[in-house]
Design a protein around this nucleic acid. Structure first.
Lengths: 250, 250
DNA sequence: GCCGCTAAATTTGTAGGACAAAAGCCGGAG
DNA sequence: CTCCGGCTTTTGTCCTACAAATTTAGCGGC
């Protein structure tokens, strides 16, 4: 990499910066993506801090802060004289927002979406049971509000997706177990990804809305098994839509 | 390469520091604990970097690295002129090893354990279904190995718990959906916590082992519903043990 | 030759100082 | 009163220097 010349660069690079996109954030994203896409395999050594600095034209300080961020997400560990080593995949916090986003970028949309839906099918019926047993009046109201928003947004796809996300997050919250919260990112990503994937294809709210309504009804009635059944059927319907879109795309 | 002589040396190690016990790690733990235990509520502002430096007697550099780590775990966000603000709980990566540990320290053992077990009852039966459908021969072997270890460790409690953990982690792995991996920490913490909680109370391996064996058998036979049922009964038994211990402690 | 100890080299960890950038605060001009 | 610009606080970045950890190499003693 021997290059001659001064080390000052980056004259260009518009001043417009997104809220959380300081230099170290971009570094974290740059390195994180390279880990998620397999450029650096688990167990392998990353370039040292000085090299990252050259690659990105940033100071060692910024590199170190980026690495500490990735450290916090379980992607790597650093040790003196050794360097930073990529952790085995099972240590990665895949449910972290950023990690999930990098992961999504590294997979094809369909594979990514299927793995998300699989998790939803395991968790959401269980969450529905807990919600039916323990939801507070406020939590029920939030659920009903989200449902109403979905109904009034039938025509506008984006608002519909947003309300749908709120619905499922409200359900998770109503289960009153905060260990379920990290899983909210799965729902957000799944619905966003599904929106991208099935757009221009058949999405039939006329079928989807009653299914959501049944979930709310069961939770309102504090009927755990009915809630589980309704949620399961909702997810069945979702997967059918997905399957149809896959067929149409192929 | 050429010759591989054995270079075993350094039998004695002095301080024997744990891998992550540098200054900034301790800072991260100190700050993280204060967030998890409610000293700093979501939405509130933390002391600025200079103040943390005084509190812990560390440089601003170390403080910043600690804060970047917590940033990566979703506990807080920092902005110039504003400071570092604690994120709402639903953004926290509760499934992160460190966050989970701080969370555990901030709750009473029983409450913590119940919330973990609740998650296990939702997830593990579903994971067992997937494992029965998709486990590879190697993954089945790992499961059988863990079961054998449990059987041969009946007398030694600690080895028993370790094998138990390996068993459930192997089951998660056999489900072949890496989004399940982050939940491994739930299992580890639940079993560790249960060991601490029920120690000196009745743990009946004579009942527990056949239940584990049934799970393996169903997965070996690629029988998803049998696997689900066996896993559910295993968890029922676990919760019974827990309930008995609770009664004894009260 | 082989062993054990020591020194060197490499990479991260910590310290501290300087300045840039962001964003709320406030006062003055119109 | 409103708007604009400077003031101020706090994080963000860069730099330099050194400490700590740990592998590698070398050197002397047996």
């Amino acid at each position: 990499m021997g290059h001659t010349g001064q080390r000052r660069r980056k004259p260009a690079r518009g001043p417009q910066r997104k809220p959380g996109s300081r230099v170290h954030s971009e570094l974290a994203a740059g390195i994180g993506r390279r880990i998620l896409d397999g450029t650096y395999q688990p167990g392998s050594l990353l370039p040292n801090e000085a090299e990252w600095g050259e690659i990105f034209g940033a100071s060692r300080t910024a590199v170190r802060e980026a690495i500490k961020t990735l450290n916090g997400k379980g992607l790597l560990v650093s040790r003196p004289k050794i360097g930073s080593r990529v952790e085995p995949r099972e240590r990665w916090n895949l449910l972290d927002r950023d990690v999930m986003a990098w992961h999504r970028a590294a997979l094809d949309e369909r594979t990514f979406l299927l793995s998300l839906q699989e998790i939803r099918r395991i968790l959401e019926p269980g969450a529905a049971v807990l919600a039916a047993q323990r939801r507070s009046p406020q939590q029920l109201a939030a659920l009903e509000k989200a449902l109403a928003d979905m109904q009034s947004a039938v025509a506008r796809s984006e608002a519909m997706v947003a309300a749908d996300v709120r619905f499922h997050l409200a359900l998770l919250a109503a289960a009153n177990n905060e260990l379920l919260a990290p899983f909210g990112i799965v729902i957000e990503q799944a619905l966003a990804s599904m929106f991208a994937y099935t757009t221009s294809h058949a999405v039939h709210p006329e079928q989807m809305l009653p299914l959501h309504a049944r979930v709310v009804k069961a939770i309102a009635a504090r009927a755990p098994e009915a809630a589980r059944k309704a949620m399961t059927e909702l997810l069945d319907d979702t997967d059918e839509t997905l399957g149809a879109a896959a067929g149409a795309q192929a």
